[in-house]
Each structure stands twice: as structure tokens, then as C-alpha cells.
Amino acid sequence: MRALLVLGLVTWLGPLSLDAYGPALPAIAVDLDAGPTAVQLTLSALVVGLAVGHLFAGSLSDRFGRRPVLLTGLAAFVVTTTMCALAPGIGTLVAARLLQGLAAATALVITKAAARDLYDGVTLARFLSHLAAIMPVAPALGPLLAAVLLEAFSWRAIFVLVAAVGAAALVVVHRSWPETSPAHVGAAPAGGRTPGPPGRQVVVELLRDRGFLTCVITFALGSAVGLVLVAGAPFVLQEGYGLSPQAYSLLFVANAVVLVGAAQLNARLLRRLRPGRVVALSLTCQLAVAGALTVALSTSVPVGPILVGLVVIVFFHGFLMPNLVAIGMHGVPQQRAGTAAALIGAGQYLVGGLAAPVVGLLGARPAALGATMVALAAAALVVHVGGERRRRARGTL
């Protein structure tokens, strides 16, 4: 229970950084005299920072331990988030968001690495499902609180709120979270394996594993669907359909509810189905809904069905993280868990960072949002199906 609560709090920093300022994107554009594409670069800068930061944080946590790297990253997160709140222009905000992403990456990497230190296989997938049930609290409450702050103060207050949550996580980890890496608590690695070579050689060996690489690519493409939604939906719904920031923030509440439901359902499905099978079903359904949503966005359908479609896409998105991370990290030695988690997360945010501005470059039109999500979901499904065939032939997850 303590692991769920502490890791859940730490994991909130990622969704808060991504989602909390979503309702404020149009306001930031006005205040800083920037266009939609420039404002969406603040999201791209964050996810690129997350991608690069994953690689550094993963290797460092394997070498020096999870706890000291996490504490350093949390302290840096508080500082860089404060920089975002004080940014005088769009260029400074983009740079500050890049640094914020580098710092936040440590929280996301070490959450997965610490989970792998404690669990493996289907047990790991179930633990991550329970963790995924806690995670949506942040993307639900964040935009709601952000909308209130936006009305009472300005978008800068949102970053002050996020910095305060980061400070709380720093205090909790410092007081209550021990080292979990076997190599740094005096325990031998599982299975009597000896530590592998550090740094680049470990990365190369992991990426040569086609099963692991398939999971990295599938997770990256599937996660990009959600990141594109975060980047494009505020402009489509607020400017195209006239939703207020407060009304838009309610979408995140609905998303949180369905993500909790997906996490709970996933834990039950894993009693009967392999994780890979669950991922295949969720990607297929996500693609179908994204296709229907694209048609709806192209034919001036009222906002109600559009909102339902977006929430359903998020629901099926909720099955990806616990299962793909568990599949990818299955059999990875614990002393390499940090690097493996880093590669999974780096791919996720690198592809998402490149995909996020696409909707803005296409004119922030409703149909562009749907078409981009369709393309990403289809690519994720194709890659996953290929990987599934190899895994089933080998009798693995």
C-alpha cells in the first residue's frame, strides 16, 4: 500500500505538468502574444525534455540508486516549474518547459524502475494497473483547479500549484521512501545475475531485443494519441465549439473516471487474458473510435458526441501503460530496470513531442485532430500485432 501511495504521488507530476495547464493554452497565447503552434511548442518542449531526461535518469538510477536520483530530480522539478511561472515571454516559457521535462522525467522513470525492483511479469502488470488507478486523480483535479486559478488569477498561478505538489512529493520521498535497487541495498540481483555493462552498451543490448523494441515503439505511438489530444483539444473545443475553460476542465474529470475504470478492468482481465492480448483489443477499439470521431469532426456534429468520443479514446488508452511496460520489462534484470524504463518513457515522449504540434501546423482544425489520432493508433496496432506474433511463438507475455 505504501508503495502505491508514494509512487502514485510521484507519478502525478507527469500528468500535472502535461494536463493542468491545458485549459490555459488559449489564455497563454493571448497573454504572451503567441499563435497556437508556438503555444503548443510549450507542450512539445516538455515532452522532449521528458524523453531526454528519461535516458539520463534511467542510467543514473541504475548506477547510483533510485532514491538519490529521485530526490535530485524532484528538487529540480520545483525550481524549473517556478521558472515557468515567472516566464516573461513565449520563448522563455518554452525553454523553462524543456527544463521542467528533464526534471520530471526522473519521477516517471524511477516509478517504473522501482516497480520492476519489486515485481515482475503479470504481477508487475497488476501493480501498474493499481498505480494507474491512482494516477488519474492528478489529470482530473489539475485542470479543475487550473480553471479556478485561471479565472481568479492568471495562467501563472497554475505553475505555482504544480510546483507546490512537487515540493510535497519531495518531502514525502525524503521521509518515507527507501532505496529499492538490489545493487544499492546490499542484495544480489534476482536470479543470481551479475550486473550488466553500464551506459551505452546496456542501451544497445536492450534495443537489439526485438520484443523489447516492439513494446517501446507501440507504447510511443499509442501514448502519442493521448498527447495529441491534450495539445489539440483545447483549441478545437474552446475556439471551435465555444467551450469555456471551466467546461473544458470537466472533460478531464470524465477522463479520470474512465481511466480508473480501465485500470480496474485491466486487473481483472489479466486473470484470463495475456497482457499482449489486452493491448491488441484496446488498440483495435481505440482505432475504431478515433475513425468515427474523425468523421464526426468533419461533419459538424454537435459537441456532445465529440466529447463522448474523446472520453472513450482515453478509456482504451488506459490499458496501454500497465500492460506494455510489463511486457517490455519482463525478464529485464533488476539492475537494468532503470535503463529499460528510461527507453520506454523516452520513446513515449519523443514521439509525442514530435506529434503534438501537428494539429497546430494543420491549422488547429477539428478534422486534423481526429486524423492525427487515427494515424497514430493505426501505426501502434500494426507494430503491436507484429510483436504479438513473435511473443506467442516464444510463449512469453
Rank of each mutant, 00 (worst) to 15 (best):
G8H: 12
P15A: 09
A20N: 13
Y21S: 06
V39S: 14
Q40S: 15
L46Y: 11
L55I: 12
F56P: 00
F56E: 06
R63N: 11
L70M: 10
A76V: 05
T81K: 05
L93F: 08
T106F: 06
L108M: 13
I110C: 07
I110W: 07
K112S: 04
L118T: 04
L124T: 04
S129T: 14
L141A: 15
L150A: 02
W155C: 10
W155V: 12
R156I: 01
F159D: 00
A164T: 00
A168S: 14
S176A: 14
W177F: 15
W177S: 08
E179A: 10
E179M: 11
S181R: 10
A190I: 04
G191P: 08
G191M: 05
V203A: 14
G211M: 11
C215E: 08
I217D: 10
I217K: 05
V225Y: 06
V230M: 06
G232W: 01
A233T: 15
L237P: 03
L243P: 03
S244T: 14
V253K: 00
N255H: 11
A256I: 06
A263P: 02
L270I: 06
R277V: 14
V278H: 08
L293R: 10
A296D: 09
P305H: 07
L310D: 07
L324P: 03
I327W: 03
G328K: 01
G331P: 01
A341T: 07
A342T: 01
G345P: 03
L354E: 06
L354I: 12
V358W: 15
V359R: 11
V359E: 14
A368W: 04
A379K: 04
G386I: 08
R389F: 14
A393Y: 02
G395L: 10
